[in-house]
Nucleic acid binder design. Structure first.
Lengths: 242, 242
DNA sequence: GCAAAAGTGTTGTGTCTACACCCATGT
DNA sequence: ACATGGGTGTAGACACAACACTTTTGC
């Protein structure tokens, strides 16, 4: 099942092994990290690889990657999952033809999932040798996250339920790779109605200081908050009559 | 070859038919149109479908879609091709399990490729019944083009080598679905260094009028021209010492 | 000269960064 | 009091849309 008998294929027809992979990212200790497992058998024995595995006959690719990730991290911790790209170079694996669809997965920084012995988190800025084309896939994941931080509410998937602006600033700085001003971060996200205050405050730290107000994301699903403004008419805003 | 013997699969392993599809867009008669062919046999006999076909054993997905498109349009007319998404719902085809990777292809408006008898262009604003999930794929293609017109030079793939600002304005208006001011279009694209004047002018039209200057795209490959500006430090511009 | 089409000058607006200043808490 | 960190006010830079105005052609 799931495989057509050869006798049927009057047209040119080819079935390849299809795998799903994921770039799972989390901010840990003020750095963006990716989940990798160490291969013990060839090809690329000893190298690190992205988690994933074969697609089953009756599942979608998204279901497949969730299923394979369940062995690495608790799926309930995956706050966001989206498709990145599909890799199909016949030489991407030295042993067999394999098409792979890559996903980007995000885990909130307050989660600390238990991982198997062969699996661990690696700083995206200092990756070890990666198997297959996994290095370039990881790069794609970083760039997708970076871009979407600018024009969507995707940071909800990296943040805990409630947080101060300072804490959120650390997440953005780690994910973007450069410093971010808390002043402007707050203004941009409040103006776009991405954040809302919970009303509560966080207790002051060890050395005193004003306690920060707590915020939460208004939506915990991906939303585009800054549609591309260029070349769009600005007028005809549906407003009240004068 | 390209198919593993069953005896080998100790792990869960499944091979699905993999197809490539393309949303090929062109601006024709001031409207954005998509290339469709009419199915003559089930499933969806009589419905219109996106061009594409099976993936061969030794080719990439990009090679595959170029090969299948060659039967519909001259591949040399394809000015741009990029991957959109991979569809994997087991129920997307009523007859067999098929995974499909969709592409977006763009054809310059001056090209007029000969197409087979079962194939024709359709206004994206008034599509007929489409087979499978091709309607939603077409929608994805439109949206990808729309978004990229705002922050990349992707219009090069819709435009001829040389054109006036007015002609370019028509392309943008058709692809975006709303009117665009030639004044601002010119300024945005010149400021970003996307366009350059050729020096030549187009002869005046039937009713006189000042002849328009001709421009060309500085690059005929996709380039991001308006990196997301938000949350990025604006300072430290590499400049000369005072 | 006059209509038609192209192109420039200018103004206003909205969104962002940067920086100064004020506020709240612990010791 | 004073150090420490949180939050607001405001100014300046920039990119854009809108519109008036000038330029260049055909008739």
């Amino acid at each position: 099942m799931g495989r057509k008998p050869d006798g049927n294929s009057s047209d040119r027809h080819f079935t390849a092994g299809h795998t799903s992979l994921a770039v799972v990212l989390q901010v840990r200790r003020a750095a963006l990290q990716v989940l990798l497992w160490r291969r013990s058998s060839p090809p690329f024995a000893g190298a690190w690889a992205l988690p994933g595995g074969y697609l089953d006959a009756h599942e979608t690719l998204e279901h497949s990657i969730r299923r394979h990730l369940a062995a690495k991290v608790d799926v309930r911790e995956l706050a966001h999952l989206e498709q990145l790209e599909t890799l199909s170079d016949p030489r991407r694996s030295p042993t067999a033809r394999e098409v792979a669809t890559a996903f980007l997965g995000l885990v909130p920084c307050n989660a600390d999932p238990a991982v198997p012995a062969d699996t661990s988190w690696h700083d995206v800025g200092a990756l070890p040798m990666l198997a297959f084309d996994h290095a370039s896939i990881t790069q794609s994941g970083r760039e997708r996250l970076r871009a979407k931080l600018s024009y969507t509410n995707i940071a909800f998937a990296l943040a805990p339920d409630e947080f101060t602006i300072s804490e959120l600033r650390e997440l953005y700085a780690a994910a973007l790779g450069h410093d971010v001003s808390p002043t402007n971060l707050q203004r941009v996200l409040l103006r776009r109605d991405v954040l809302e205050p919970t009303g509560a405050r966080r207790a002051s730290g060890r050395a005193g200081g004003r306690p920060g107000a707590l915020f939460r994301f208004r939506e915990r699903r991906l939303q585009v908050t800054d549609e591309f403004a260029v070349l769009r008419p600005r007028g005809r805003v549906a407003g009240s009559a004068p």
